[in-house]
Structures are given as structure tokens and as C-alpha cells.
Design a binder for these strands. Structure first.
Lengths: 236, 236
DNA sequence: AGAGCGATTTTTGTCGACAAATAAAATACA
DNA sequence: TGTATTTTATTTGTCGACAAAAATCGCTCT
């Protein structure tokens, strides 16, 4: 599967400051989409020749990824994709539920007209992804939908924290969606519609309530999933 | 003031992997303690000769700091210490209050016996700093106190988010404490004692209530401060 | 044959140097 | 004298190379 983007394009020229960002973005996506599963070794020289650049910009991208906890670096030895902490999964869900509630509540309070259009656009993309049964697109558009709601809440700290959590969760969600064979989430589409309605109505309490049940339902589904497949085949 | 640590120690040898961490830690502290005020230019070569090392490890440290938003990098031009966003200060306080509440609440729920000892130790250090009227120590020990409470809550995501906020706030708190001439915070010492008591009693609702009033009181003081000094002399 | 020890290989951390990009200075021109 | 343009200088981004650490392999000795 040497897919999508050919790293060695015919033009060997690359714009000056773009190296690190390109490597960072691509590696990050590959990690979050489980193309690079947890535990995968990260080889600097391999990446260097893959992107046809020196090790220096690669290292800077890796430092950034390490700063976000996506890769783990043993002092003088290898560096690899960080593991998912399955044991403390419930703490992650607690945080996720809270941020769902807070951001949705704030959106109901502070959103402007333009925000709603953005949110509806994201919701349309999510619905399309569900229709097409495209798991990766579902994850991405679902995150974008809730991220747009958070943006409408107009608190950059909360949106920052929330996006951070959504990223963390992308790997877990990836497991979730791919296990359910890309069906089922039609229900989420409807719930999203309800959330948009209460936000538009500026019904803060209802927004909080909906966000809570929405989040808790997702959490319940995922936990059910992890209870079934004994976590042995996925944990490494 | 060529203080504390002499960068050029008699031994020109430094341990192999320690360069980036040393630069990162020091720069980070200098930024958060306002030794490097917002807007200060960061010169790579200057740092390089100051630490007697190449620009490569310095750059990696800077990349990490930029990842945390502590420094801002103009594409091909200079990099400098990020500004404090005074305009959206209230959003920061909203986030801070919420995290105070959540972490204290969880601490009341999930703490163990050992946690209380750690918390009490931090509280003692904070009281000592207040007694000594040492502003920097007050900030550090206050943050450590609340961080210990968060740890007792046993949710690494919340502690991570919370510590992040506390760091962000260190610069603002620095302004706050240095303006009040290092007196007044005796009241906080007492409130901390109350918080410890309700946590130990596992009174979740009381913990939430205390954390909320404690946080909101701090916020109110700081906002009062920023209303007075017209923010002109401090904003740059 | 197995364990201990030294040499080789691999990978990381650091270095000095070069080239692109931008700002600052100098020059020309109206 | 003021403005546009070229030249210089400063600073960043990238490169190839070297040296330290760790792991791997091979050898020796009992």
C-alpha cells in the first residue's frame, strides 16, 4: 500500500520552512489513525531518506510529537509510538464527558450566528461520512463537529484542552469504529441534530444534558466493546 | 546579576543527552517567572554561546517551548516570548475555576491516606513561603499544593490539563503577587486548611463549594488588580 | 558447551558550515 | 529632500559528518 502522496515528487525542491511541519503532520496523522500502531519503532534515518531530507528537521518534528506524548523516547536508545493506556481508560472518559458538557454548554451561551453555520456544515460532513460508511472520515468529522461547537463557546483554553482530548481519543475511537464495521452511528447523527437545536435555542441546561447523555452513551458503547474483545488482541 | 548557576562551569564536559532538557527547563522557568518578559527576543546563537553548545539542541528546546505556546516563532524571522492574552483573561479564569472544582472534588472522592500527607506537606511549604513573604516561592508552592490535590484525584488527564493551566497562570500570578508586595495571602493559607479538611472528610459537595469560592476569590482579586493598573504599564 | 569479556555495529546526540529568507543599510534617482 | 532600488548583513533552516551509548556479535577461557 504505497498510497496517496508520493514522498519523492519529481521536484526535489521543497519550500524552506515546510519540512518539519510536513513530517509532523503526516506522522501525527499516521499515529492517530493507527497506521503506525502503538509500539511501532520510529527510525530517524529511515524517515530522513523517506522524506529526502536531513535528520535535523525530522528530529524537530519528533521532539514536538514527544511533547504531545504521542511518541516515547528512551534516553539514548530507540523511540517508538506511545501505547494507549487501557487501564486508566475510564479517567479519559471522565475528562471527555466533562469537556463535552462544558463546551456544548458554553456554545449555547456564547455562540453567534456564523458559528451555527459552521457547526451545521460539520454535521453535514459527519452525516455524509456515516452514509458512506467511511470509518476514518466519521472519526475526523465527528471530532470536527464537536470542535466547532467548542469554538462557538469562545474559550480558547477549553477548546485547546478539548481538542487535545479528542486527539488522544482518536486512536481509541479508531479501534471502536473499525470494530463496529462502520455501521450503527446513525443514532449519533440524530443526537447531533438535537444538540444543534438546543444550542441555537440558547437552552444552556438542555445543552448540558444532551452533551452528557451523548458522551456517556459513546463511552458506554466503547466500554462494552473493550469488555468483549478481551483487550488481549489489541493491547500490545 | 549573573546569579545562581554559572553556565560555563570549569568542566567543559556535559552529559550527553542533558543539553536540551537543561535549556528547556531553564528557559521555561525564566519565561514563567517573568525573568524573560513577554516579547523578549530569543536569539539562538546567543543561547548557543551562553550554554556553550551548538544551535541544534537549543533549537530542539525551542521547538518544545513553542509546542507549549510559551514562545512564538515567526516563520523565517525572529522568535520571542509569547504575550499574555490580557483580553481573553476571563476565559482563562473560567477554565481555572472549573479545574479547581473538578480536581478538588475528585480528590475528596478518590484520595488515599498517603495523598493527604503530601498535600499537607505542600500546604506547609506554602505557609512558610507566605510567612517569608517570598513571592516566587508562594506561586510555586501554591501551584504544588493544588497540583498535589489534583494528583489525589487520580485522573491523569485532569492533572495534566490542570498543571498546564497552572503553568499558563504562573506568569499572571507573578504579576499579581509582585503587585501586592507579598502580603495578604495569609487568607489563602486558611482556606487551604479548610480544603484539606473537607477532602479528608470526603465531603464531595463541600470540596466543590470551597474550591469554587477559593478560585473565584483569587480571580476577583486579580481582576481588581488589572482594573487598577491600567494594564498599560504591564502590557507591551 | 556456557559464561564472561572485548570488538563491531547501529543509532542517537551534537557539531560546524552553508544557503535561503528577510531586514537593514547604502546608493541612485527624481 | 524624499523615495525607489540595489547591496550588505543578520538570522534562520538544513545539511553532512563525527563522537558517545547501547546493543549485538564474536572470541576466549574454564
Amino acid at each position: 500500500m504505497t498510497d496517496k502522496d508520493s514522498d519523492a515528487s519529481s521536484a526535489p525542491e521543497r519550500k524552506r520552512g515546510s519540512g518539519v511541519k510536513m513530517v509532523y503532520d503526516l506522522l501525527r496523522d499516521e499515529i492517530l489513525d493507527l497506521v503506525l500502531p502503538p509500539g511501532s519503532p520510529i527510525d530517524e534515518v529511515q524517515l530522513a531518506e523517506r522524506f529526502k531530507m536531513s535528520r535535523t528537521p525530522i528530529r524537530e518534528a519528533l521532539v514536538r510529537l514527544a511533547g504531545e506524548g504521542l511518541i516515547a523516547t528512551l534516553p539514548n536508545r530507540s523511540t517508538m509510538v506511545s501505547n494507549i493506556d487501557f487501564l486508566n481508560l475510564h479517567t479519559f472518559f471522565d475528562a471527555l464527558v466533562l469537556m463535552y458538557r462544558v463546551t456544548t454548554r458554553l456554545a449555547a451561551e456564547h455562540h453567534r450566528q456564523e458559528d451555527l453555520e459552521v457547526i451545521r456544515a460539520r454535521q453535514a460532513e459527519f452525516a455524509a461520512a456515516v452514509q458512506a460508511q467511511d470509518a476514518l472520515a466519521m472519526i475526523a468529522t465527528n471530532a470536527a463537529f464537536h470542535s466547532a461547537i467548542a469554538e462557538a463557546g469562545r474559550n480558547p483554553y477549553f477548546t485547546g484542552l478539548f481538542n487535545r482530548l479528542l486527539d488522544e481519543g482518536r486512536r481509541i475511537l479508531r479501534l471502536y469504529y473499525q470494530s463496529y464495521d462502520d455501521r450503527l452511528p446513525q443514532r449519533f447523527v440524530d443526537e447531533h441534530e438535537d444538540m444543534i437545536a438546543v444550542i441555537a435555542a440558547r437552552d444552556v441546561e438542555a445543552a448540558d444534558r444532551l452533551a452528557r447523555t451523548h458522551a456517556e452513551q459513546i463511552v458506554e458503547q466503547i466500554q462494552k466493546l473493550f469488555a468483549r474483545k478481551d483487550r488481549l488482541e489489541i493491547a500490545l
